[in-house]
Amino acid sequence: MRSASIAECGHEESNAVKETQLLDIHDLVVHFLREEQVVKAVDGVDLRVKPGESVGLVGESGSGKTVLSRSIARLMANAVIDKMSGQVVFQNTDLLSLSERELERRRRKSFLSMVFQDPLGYLNPTKRVGRQVAEALPPELSRRSRRHRVAELFTQVGLPGDKASLRLYPHEFSGGMRQRVLIAMALASRPRLLIADEPTTALDVTVQVQVLNTLERLHREQDMALLVITHDLALVAELCDRVYVMYAGQIVESGDVETVLSSPHHPYTQGLIASMPGQRRRMNKVDGLVGSVPNLALLPSGCRFRSRCPHAFDRCEEMPPLMPTSTGSTSRCWLSEPEAEGEDPS
């Protein structure tokens, strides 16, 4: 599919770049107000997802990753937004430029779906699960094909598709099964992109593997692109092809998962990897990052990681741009410039 679309628009270089992206976020800025302070949750983010690709967005709490994911689907409440600019181009339409009405119309037959962390919070406790999944189906379907499709969706996500199961209520399901119900709802519109925000954080480890396995299978079998938002680098390592690392509202590093994890360029990524215990065998001191994510309303000037960075030097007072590195990834750090590498700032 990817190769086909490249062939179609190969005659024009710039066009080809545009067309091969399923989701193309360009210079997205989302600032909102909290207690009369401007919170720069998303501050100039570029992010791309190709058709059928699996992309991870990693960040700690307060990095702005959830605001970013919600902004893609325009789920941020307008009332709190102080500033929102940039483009979120999905299948060649800028979602940010759509009117509320147009947005609503498109959501009904959306090729973009989302799955959230806490499944119980997104299910109606008084409605049978089968019915809730059916609500996500296109309204023009007949009753019979509707029932048939719900059963099909249930089987796809690894739930029993029999009549009795469809008639159960959310509370009769375990956490893992509820998350599957949510995934079934997300799949109802046959999305080309599934955004999963911490899809397995609330689940037990053995159930986490089951749900991730299901997501991976659906991604592969249906050629559905995945954007997985998580704090867990290991989850990204196992599930994704590419990764974006977010820190204090900005992307600080991106690239192939293997490249970024094996040779991280940004000191934050390096610290994040070093913070993961047990990846290297038994150690006496767990080394990693000092301090914590800065308040998004009171950001320091220059590089936002500066105060926690073990390599910070004079130049860091100036904000570094995202720049290509020697390994093909990009990094927002002055020390990641190919010519600067190996240089000792002190």
Binding site: V209, R220, L233, E238, L239, E258
Partner: peptide
């Protein structure tokens, strides 16, 4: 079910799954 950042080790699709809750 322990996920690893060492991507060469294993990918999610190859992990044995424990069924049920």
């Amino acid at each position: 079910s322990r996920l690893s950042i060492d991507a060469s080790k294993r990918r999610i699709r190859d992990r044995p799954i424990l069924t049920g809750d």
